[in-house]
């Protein structure tokens, strides 16, 4: 079977866990993370896998075991006023198979909290502090969750959608 990513007959957009798992059955991430995925998306040649927030460490360890050895990036998207409000996007790269996947977890707005993945990748440290600072998402098990960009006495979380871009708060 040809590589689904370079194969032109692979559709450009597939939505839903089962449809993606069928179309990209040979993808290393699908094979490695299959039991943890709750939703999947194959859009513009990028794979997005949604996992339950409580399984995030297990998902990261599964991704690491599947060959995705490089943690690139973590950030959040605030879908206010939709619930679950916060989407935490982790971008994971495999240096050996030269592929990138995105692992996503959605958190609700009342006490947004997710496990820290610094035990899997120490490089997540600054990224989690940044999300905490700018979105107010808590990371359980983070060694020192403090503000990184804004001053320590700052009130509010600037990248939330209910925080105005200009004018008064």
């Amino acid at each position: 079977m040809p590589d689904p990513i370079t194969n032109p007959s692979t559709p450009t957009a597939i939505f839903g866990k089962d449809a993606v798992a069928e179309a990209l059955a040979d993808h290393a991430a699908i094979r490695g993370l299959a039991p943890l995925i709750t939703d999947a998306k194959w859009d513009r040649k990028e794979l997005t896998l949604t996992v339950d927030p409580s399984n995030i460490i297990a998902a990261m360890q599964a991704a690491q075991a599947a060959g995705y050895n490089f943690f690139e990036d973590a950030t959040a998207v605030d879908w206010y006023p939709t619930e679950p409000r916060f989407q935490i996007s982790y971008s994971i790269l495999s240096i050996s198979i030269k592929q990138r996947i995105r692992i996503v977890a959605r958190l609700s707005s009342d006490s947004p909290r997710i496990d820290s993945i610094t035990s899997v990748w120490p490089s997540a440290n600054f990224y989690e502090r940044e999300i905490f600072d700018l979105f107010g998402v808590q990371f359980s098990g983070h060694p020192r969750l403090t503000r990184i960009m804004m001053p320590d006495n700052w009130e509010g979380h600037p990248l939330r959608k209910d925080y105005p871009v200009e004018g008064y708060r």
Binding site: F126, R144, T146
Partner: peptide, 21 residues
């Protein structure tokens, strides 16, 4: 390529401290 480093478990002390630490 870093391929064989996939299962590497980093030590806790790789985490860079905060000023307060």
């Amino acid at each position: 390529t870093g391929a064989t480093l996939a299962g590497f478990r980093p030590a806790e002390d790789l985490i860079i401290p905060d000023v307060k630490d």
